[in-house]
Design a protein around this nucleic acid. Structure first.
Lengths: 365, 365
DNA sequence: AACCATTATGGAAACGTTTCCAGTTGGAGA
DNA sequence: TCTCCAACTGGAAACGTTTCCATAATGGTT
């Protein structure tokens, strides 16, 4: 906390006995200079411990060499990895990442983008609740700030780094169908009107229909149910006919597994479960989760590359959808003949306590 | 990607028919101005869509309103949550977070700090491999950049936001001892000479000794063993006498659980396991992990508050250690009388295949 | 020997702010 | 009516760069 004396290029020039213009040229190797003065400037800079002020530079070049990054939350490994990917790809480019989190709140979203813009970021990488409705985002575009979304499916006028949620969801339906499931469900967070979730449902629905399965039951739950297995179990108990459920993301899928176990339903014998994202945790479970594996890191990297291209003067170009991969896990099996399709409302086997009752009990407490 | 015309305060002043000094005073409400001109300036700013250039401001005020943040990796939820905490606490302060990851590499560490410093960050929040050996960190201190570490135990001359690793580890030893364990182990990553891990071992060791237990076996493994349960199993098989193992972090503890299962050892009947950190995942396991629960988010918040205080001119003050909490989970039990202490090298029960052999097989393939 | 083309060099402007300071008002008190 | 003070006002400097431009020196041609 001592002396706050900053060494500027002026000091260096003075010490080297030359003008600042010359010092600048030497230090940036951006113009002619005699070997003699070159040497003197280098030495002066070294001895004084000079380093450029990126603020001075930014002011003069009108580039902050800074990229704004907005994600809903870093506590979600999917987004954390994506940011890590962006960050990794930026190394060596001279650009730094300014990050912000919105906590899944559309208003905070917009405010965060505005904040990042006010920091003179040269570009923006963002995952938002509704980018197309963000005033700040419009402002960004108008100002000519390079922008690339992450996770969002292509959206009018925005370049995005993404996986094809619709297609990926179709693959899940195909897997379910292949095992002989007829009555399926789609589990999603209520209010999570994210385009991702919507498109997953759409793809799942479309493929179920194409294969002659019943239209999937849409099960929407709140945060509360998602975090408390017993409460989710109560809801699950209302859908005894389903033999396979596709959860909109892995966390929901894991909660679903717990809920099923709570009801005494075995996964996968009594209920098949699939998730989305392919987070590492799913693998660690005793019954590893079947899921659509994606690479958030790759998504971040692709977004960063796209941005970098724009920053180098390239036109914004929408990169192709990133690949996904269905990971089988162990939560998938053929439907239990005693359940579901056959129309009987027979209790699932091997339940210690009667499922319905247990759920009811919890609900009424 | 169109017009890149920036509206400056000069434009506003001109539109309002006043000098820039006056415009600045009005817009910042930092000095006298007649109601008349005040009105004109406000309107001009609004109509022109003016917003301050934080670069211009930074140059003049010599404050970038930016805080550098370095963590080993965002893919580790512990650090991701900490960053999220820092970020959350910074909201409304006007400071923004510039982040960087080192991937646990000391050289990258140092380079990252240097990079952040070169970006004129007003402060630094960091978790490094070896802060005390970083030249860039010395430079930061010399330059008077406010600095606060995270996760590190107090270190000569650095302020840090942390939990008392030594004390927390003692608690684990106490728990083990309380259940009757005599022969314990400490599992850590080789080369992870982090002060955290070292202090955990020290605390664990000290308390084991204080309680008359055998000195804990130090089991060091490489990245490879940590990520492949079979390979960890091979190592584990060399320690048949241990009845309880304390892993230096939750990921290792989870790997350990898998390895034990691989050997046919039941957790907790045949082996008690405890981890450190209290990551959410541990809860989701079928046998929920016993662990020392900490709050990385709180750590981040505390670091941010500490930094903010310094930034407001306060002297750096070391905050107290953050609380931790031993979460029992289900991976703890009294030692199995058939194993360990009794000196017999009896095979653990209920192993489908002979443990030794199975491990050997894998190792030799 | 006069000239030209390089190559070096440094002063000054510009980037967008804030702040110091000096100057201009207008009104109140003597 | 004169003086004085407070409230306003705007020019200019400063923050640290880069770059434009004009000038100076060097060396090689005619």
């Amino acid at each position: 906390m001592q002396r706050r004396t900053t060494i500027t290029i002026k000091d260096v020039a003075q010490a080297a006995g030359c003008g600042v213009a010359t010092a600048s040229r030497v230090l940036n190797d951006s113009g002619p200079a005699s070997a003699d003065v070159r040497e003197r400037v280098q030495r002066a800079a070294r001895e004084l411990g000079f380093s450029f002020s990126s603020i001075g530079r930014a002011l003069q070049s009108r580039r902050s060499m800074t990229i704004g990054c907005l994600v809903p939350s870093l506590a979600n490994p999917v987004f954390a990895e994506a940011v890590q990917g962006v960050q990794a790809e930026l190394i060596g480019s001279g650009y730094q990442l300014l990050i912000s989190c919105s906590n899944y709140d559309a208003a905070a979203d917009d405010a965060a983008i505005a904040m990042l813009l006010s920091k003179d970021t040269d570009a923006l990488v963002a995952t938002m609740v509704a980018p197309e409705r963000s005033a700040a985002m419009r402002m960004a575009r108008q100002r000519g700030v390079a922008t690339c979304l992450m996770f969002h499916d292509p959206l009018d006028g925005f370049v995005t780094s993404y996986v094809d949620n619709f297609e990926a969801a179709r693959e899940v339906a195909r897997q379910f169908a292949g095992l002989g499931h007829r009555r399926t469900g789609f589990l999603a967070l209520r209010f999570s009107t994210s385009d991702r979730s919507r498109n997953r449902y759409a793809g799942f629905h479309a493929e179920c229909r194409a294969r002659g399965l019943a239209d999937p039951a849409l099960i929407e739950i709140g945060e509360a149910e998602a975090s408390e297995p017993e409460r989710l179990a109560a809801i699950l108990a209302d859908h005894p006919q389903l033999t396979a459920i596709f959860a909109s993301n892995d966390f929901l899928a894991i909660a679903l597994q717990k809920a099923a176990r709570f009801l005494g339903w075995r996964v996968p014998q009594d209920l098949s479960v699939a998730g989305f994202d392919g987070i590492e945790v799913g693998r660690l479970l005793d019954v590893p989760l079947a899921t659509v594996e994606t690479s958030p890191e790759a998504m971040g990297r692709q977004a960063a590359r796209t941005i970098l291209q724009m920053l180098q003067g390239g036109e914004p170009v929408q990169p192709p959808a990133l690949p996904f991969h269905f990971r089988a896990g162990a939560t998938l099996a053929a439907p239990n003949p005693e359940t579901g399709d056959d129309g009987q409302d027979a209790p699932r086997p091997s339940s210690a306590l009667p499922a319905r009752t247990s759920a009811q009990t919890r609900m009424n407490r």
